[in-house]
Each structure stands twice: as C-alpha cells, then as structure tokens.
Design a protein around this nucleic acid. Structure first.
Length: 416
DNA sequence: TCTGGGGTCCTAGGACCC
DNA sequence: TCTGGGGTCCTAGGACCC
C-alpha cells in the first residue's frame, strides 16, 4: 500500500505553532510581495477567502473579521517541513518527499494501516504541532484520491484507507467526485474530458486507456491505469538532480531604469549560483528574462539565452554576461514588472570540462568558499558584489513577516 | 495602486544525417 | 520534373504540480 501524507493548510499551520493563540482563528499567508493568498486556515476558508486571490480584493473582509495576515516565511516552512518529513520517514519502508508539505510512503508489509496512520497523525502532531491527512491506496493516484476524501469528509477524520472502504463505496465516491480532482488532471484537460462526457473520477476510471493516450498523452493513460489499481508511477525515493534552476520575482512597482534591472539580475544570479553550489551543479546555459505586468494591455515579455563555453558556477563570472543580456533585452520605454534568471544544461562537478586558456578560476576557487563562509556567519547580505548595490528598487515587500523561530538564534521565541 | 515562485514532463515539428 | 525510409537531436509550447 502507498500512503500520501499531506500537511493541512501547511503554511498557515506553521504560523500558528509559535502563536498558539491563533489556533482556530482565521489566518492567511500571502505570496511574495504580499500579493496573493497562498495558504488559509480553516476559519479563513469558512469566511470565503479563496486560494490565489489578490490580497487587495479581500482586504475588506480581512479587516472586518480580524483575519491575521502573514507574509510567506520560507525559512520557517522549510525547517518545519524537514521535521515532519523525517518523522514520516521513520514510519515507512521507503519515502518520496514530493513537495514541501507532501510525502508518499511505501507501507508494504505493515498491518492494520488505518490504526498505523492514526499513530502517524498523533506523533506528528505531538512532535511538531502540524496536522496531517493520510490517504491510503494501492497506487499513487489512488493514494492521492484517498487523501482528497480524507480531508473532504469529516467523518473520516483525516485518514482514508480505500482498501478498508471497499470497492463499492470507493466507486460510489468516485461517481460523485469531479474528474478535475484527479491528480494530473488540470482545468484544460478536465474541460476537454467533459466535452467527451467524462465528468467524474469514475468515468475516467472506466475510460479506454489507449483511447485516452491517443487524445492526450502517455501520462493520462497512466492516470487511468492507476485509477484501476495498476501501478505505473513509481515511488521515487532518491531526489533527482534539478534539470534547471530558476530565480525570478516581481518588482513591487514598475521598473524602467537599466540599473534597477541590472541589480535585480545580479540578485537572481547570486540566488541561482548559491543553489547550484549546494548541489555541486554547473550550468552550460543561462537565460535572462523580463516582462511587463501581465494583467495590463500591451503585455510584453522578452528573454535571451546565452551559452556558457565552459560550464561554470561562479556568480562573478556569470555576472559578466549581464551587460550583454541587458544590451539585448533592455528598452528604456518598457515598464518592467518581473524579471528572472534560469540556468540550464546542469551537470555535476566531475563532468565539467575546464577551458584550457581560462585561468580566472584559479584565484576564484578560493574566493567563493570564503564568501560563503562570511555569509554563513554574518548573513546573506553581509558581502556582495559592488555592482549589486546599484539599486534596491526591486526589494521585496513583506509587511507581515513572522520570526524565523527555528533557524535564527536572534529570533527565538521569548517566554516572559 | 495592489494579481507568487519554482519545478516536471510530453509532443510536434524542424534540422540534420545516411 | 519526379523525390524513400529510417533515424537522432533540439526547441518551443503546452500541460501539469505544489
């Protein structure tokens, strides 16, 4: 059996751990730039606050009902995620950490799975204060469906074991569930399925797999098979290396100056290089992109790809491409709203071919670890490229940021 | 005024090869 | 003027996920 374990309202739940007075209260967590709602406590859901709505549209409701607002605090969420995942890992034969708040567990050979899941719930709750839901099924798609039921139906109390429910009741549940709830079926595919008169999860389950493959693709065929209990999607215990790494962000206002854009690019390059170094990855291609506000007329987006002759990770070296990128991208009459950097063609250190005539790296090999050390000790902004100081026009808006209770000694919870 | 960020995978079609 | 068959590799675009 496979379990899909999912943290309930994860970011919102994290925010209440160190603010217990907020449990049961309406709270929401906002995206970067305090733009849109990305997590809600149950009490906020009751108030009708929808996922993904921009904050300014619900500000009135929030003020009226005293909804507590938080900016996203990934230092906190990541550290809580690690704790939850490591507890869950101890319960399983093997584990795939699927996202920051979800994990697939292989529970083969374990008896009495419903009781076992209850025990997982109480343990995670006791040790971290994070509530979880458990869905049990014979395939990943079924485990996901079970998890959906576990949350949807109160009487299940956050644990749903399809095997225990029995085929008749599972089919019945599938018959009353919209096909869009299936893992892998998004709104476009569900629209098309409905035109084919496939409206519920059950309709999709009994559809002809090869027909589905012809119309959609092989992944949709796998989904159909998995709904029927035929395993097609493996549990991936080992995390695959990144195919690409992105850093991108909206500006809090529209940007027109070349220097502002440049300093944002430098910020993103440092970000991306930091992530590459952590995984010992080197890039062979870098993409700079920038765009205007996508909610306005005359939406414009532009990008440039630059090949890196000998794969490198050094941000100082990659920085030399910025001016080239700006020459190609920057236009003074464009109001930029977002920009970012993507690195591609990632390879691990041992496969890097060094450029025979390039000796800039020799010194640099020593500089970078030193820079890292300074940053570890004194914080990320303690040392940076001189050119990164051109402007801070692109800085993040985080008006409602909570403390980094679990990752920063200066921000520990104080008990009075 | 204000609308997130970071990922994965698949397919069609073009360029190129013998 | 007519123009095969069988491949590979790359990229853009579209779909999905949390």
């Amino acid at each position: 059996m496979i379990a899909l374990v999912d943290c309930n309202n994860f970011y919102a739940s994290c925010e209440t751990i160190f603010r217990p007075e907020l449990k049961e209260k309406p709270i929401i967590v906002l995206s970067n730039q305090d733009g849109a709602v990305i997590s809600r406590s149950n009490a906020s859901k009751v108030l009708g606050v929808k996922m993904g709505v921009p904050y300014y549209q619900i500000k009135e409701i929030c003020d009226k009902y005293g909804v507590q607002i938080f900016s996203s605090n990934y230092a906190l969420y990541n550290s809580m995620s690690k704790r939850v995942m490591s507890i869950l890992g101890n319960f399983a034969v093997s584990q795939e950490i699927y996202s920051i708040d979800e994990s697939f567990l292989d529970l083969n050979g374990i008896d009495n799975l419903t009781a076992y899941s209850e025990k997982m719930r109480t343990t995670v709750m006791q040790w971290t204060s994070i509530p979880i839901s458990v869905g049990l099924g014979s395939t990943k798609v079924l485990a996901k469906f079970a998890n959906y039921l576990a949350k949807k139906h109160k009487f299940l109390d956050n644990v749903c074991n399809l095997e225990e429910l029995g085929e008749t009741r599972v089919n019945k549940a599938m018959q009353i569930t919209d096909v869009a709830e299936v893992w892998g079926v998004g709104w476009r595919v569900s629209r098309k399925l409905k035109q084919m008169n496939i409206n519920t999860v059950y309709d999709l389950k009994i559809a002809n797999p090869s027909h589905i493959r012809k119309i959609f693709n092989i992944n949709m065929e796998r989904v159909v098979q998995e709904l029927n209990g035929i395993k097609c999607i493996d549990l991936e215990e080992l995390k695959k290396a990144n195919r690409h790494i992105i850093s991108s962000r909206n500006f809090d206002h529209e940007v027109t100056s070349r220097d502002d854009l440049k300093s944002a690019f430098i910020y993103h390059i440092e970000n991306v290089c930091g992530k590459m170094r952590k995984q010992n990855l080197f890039a062979r291609q870098i993409i700079f992109c920038a765009r205007t506000n996508r909610f306005k007329d005359n939406y414009f987006s532009t990008s440039i790809e630059i090949a890196i002759p000998s794969a490198l990770d050094s941000f100082r070296y990659i920085s030399s491409y910025i001016d080239r990128a700006l020459d190609a991208i920057y236009k003074p009459d464009i109001k930029y709203k977002k920009c970012g950097v993507i690195v591609n063609g990632l390879i691990t250190g041992e496969y890097v071919t060094k450029d025979l005539f390039d000796n800039t790296n020799i010194k640099h090999d020593k500089v970078l670890p030193a820079v890292e050390k300074v940053r570890m000790r004194f914080g990320k902004s303690a040392i940076k490229l001189a050119s990164a100081n051109l402007s801070d026009a692109w800085k993040m808006e985080q008006r409602f940021l909570s403390k980094r209770y679990t990752t920063d000694l200066n921000e520990l919870l104080e008990v009075v």
